[in-house]
Design a protein around this nucleic acid. Structure first.
Length: 389
RNA sequence: GGGUAGGUUGAGCAGGUGGUGAGCUCCGCUGACUGUAGAUCAGCCGUCUUCGACUGUGGGGGUUCGAUUCCCUCCCUGCCCA
């Protein structure tokens, strides 16, 4: 059942059925993978090193997580893709039997650019762990992801700061296109899907061209990369508009990489995005910031040390059902490990609850109303006086 | 009671043998974080009218143009001896 022909005839290990919702270009869908079904629009918590930091697979299930993201670069350095394969693949290794998407290492070419040098064939870099020389190419990225055995592999791409001179943005885009074809040629694991990545910075012409070129290839899904790396919200929205227009009625799943914040989801969903991933919920949680129906709150703030209320009274996560803000504030101050776990549990739950609410709102036509409500939460957070003496 | 070592901004320290002590680490306060080199990073952390200025080295007094530094005295703390 998970096999359906892509527009180009390639037999895909995943299935995607999608129907337009009533709002903008938003759609509701079901993505079927070898390890389970994903309701879209959906958010993927990031588990770079074969763990969503501080959370167990059981915790993830409790949050409603349907699919997680793992990372080619990190796992190939440690513990090593071949080792993971010997141990039964990434699912068995980390004891998560749900769907997994693996990033290709392309983002690290960007975030760790100072450690490496790029050429048309790939990237050579010094391991951030031990300084050893490493080489990543489209072919090696495919090999690693096949060894990991994720349900969805990502093409190896190059992203750059969209504010760079157009010639440099174009060079990265063209390279991404060439690498996309090499990824498709190299990839041959039949039970693993492969998504292509659209680049082109925030230039409408380049984005349109990249969308057309990537969509012309027999990928199982399409991703928009290179956004939320410093451009404005307006530029991100305009770029998504261009991509949506260029993709037209292409039936494949659309994944906006590295996004985002609660309000970013609305901007993406109404422009036809089906999948999101972002480190934000888990990273800011470890740094004390929790997302709630009262906006963002920082549990380290002095005002919470005597607050007996739950983090979010309307949240059903274990953190909110069991503990007070005062307790969380204490744990953060004491740097107790439980702080990071409880905070992560809450933020992931909040994010997945939000995605669930977005799907429900798309189904019953209340998307705009939901957006207004959520925007209200975060505007209140932003307008809160800096100091309240 | 005698001897000895000390008393520096919430804590712990550095420095300072007559003319620049607001320097460090904690603690504390706030902010940031978008395909995770991040349980991280940044700013603030005596007072004020904050691109600067002022005050501040246990208290009091003295010497001096000028004292954290030299002298006298008192208080407090640790240790040793009685």
């Amino acid at each position: 059942m998970p096999s359906s022909p892509s527009p180009t005839g390639r037999v895909s290990p995943i299935g995607f059925s999608v129907r337009p919702a009533r709002t903008g270009l938003a759609r509701l869908g079901r993505l079927t993978t070898p390890h389970g079904v994903i309701d879209t629009p959906q958010f993927m918590p990031v588990g770079t090193q074969a763990t969503v930091k501080s959370l167990t697979p059981g915790d993830l299930r409790a949050t409603g997580t349907q699919i997680i993201l793992g990372n080619t670069y990190h796992l190939s350095l440690r513990p090593g893709a071949e080792r993971v394969a010997r141990l039964g693949g990434l699912h068995r290794f980390m004891a998560w039997d749900g769907p997994i998407l693996t990033d290709s290492g392309g983002f690290q070419v960007f975030s760790l650019a100072h450690l490496g040098t790029l050429d048309d064939d790939g990237v050579t870099f010094a391991s951030h762990l031990d300084g050893s020389t490493q080489r990543l190419t489209p072919e090696r990225s495919m090999e690693i992801q096949e060894l990991l055995g994720s349900d969805i592999a990502m093409a190896f791409d190059q992203l750059v700061d969209p504010m760079l001179p157009p010639a440099e943005v174009e060079e990265a885009m063209v390279r991404t296109h060439r690498w996309a074809e090499r990824c498709l040629r190299a990839h041959d694991r039949p039970d693993q899907a492969l998504f292509g990545i659209i680049q082109g910075g925030v230039d409408a012409g380049m984005r349109r061209r990249s969308a057309a070129e990537i969509a012309a290839l027999p990928f199982d899904g399409l991703a928009v990369g290179g956004l939320s790396v410093g451009e404005s919200k307006g530029q991100m929205a305009e770029t998504l508009d261009v991509v949506a227009d260029a993709l037209g009625d292409d039936p494949r799943a659309r994944y906006l990489m590295g996004v985002g914040s609660p309000l970013d989801f609305f901007a993406g969903v109404e422009r036809g995005i089906d999948l999101f991933d972002c480190v934000l919920p888990t990273r800011v949680a470890r740094n004390g910031q929790l997302w709630t129906r009262e906006g963002r709150i920082n549990m380290r703030n002095a005002r919470f040390v005597d607050d007996p209320a739950p983090v979010d009274a309307d949240c059903s996560c274990d953190t909110c059902r069991t503990f007070s803000r005062a307790y969380l504030a204490h744990l953060f101050r004491a740097e107790e490990l439980l702080a990071y776990r409880l905070a992560s549990l809450h933020n992931v739950t909040y994010t997945l609850d939000l995605m669930r609410m977005i799907r429900a709102a798309l189904a019953d036509g209340s998307f705009e109303s939901l957006r207004a409500t959520v925007a209200g939460h975060y505007q209140r957070a932003e307008s809160r006086p800096v100091s309240r003496q």
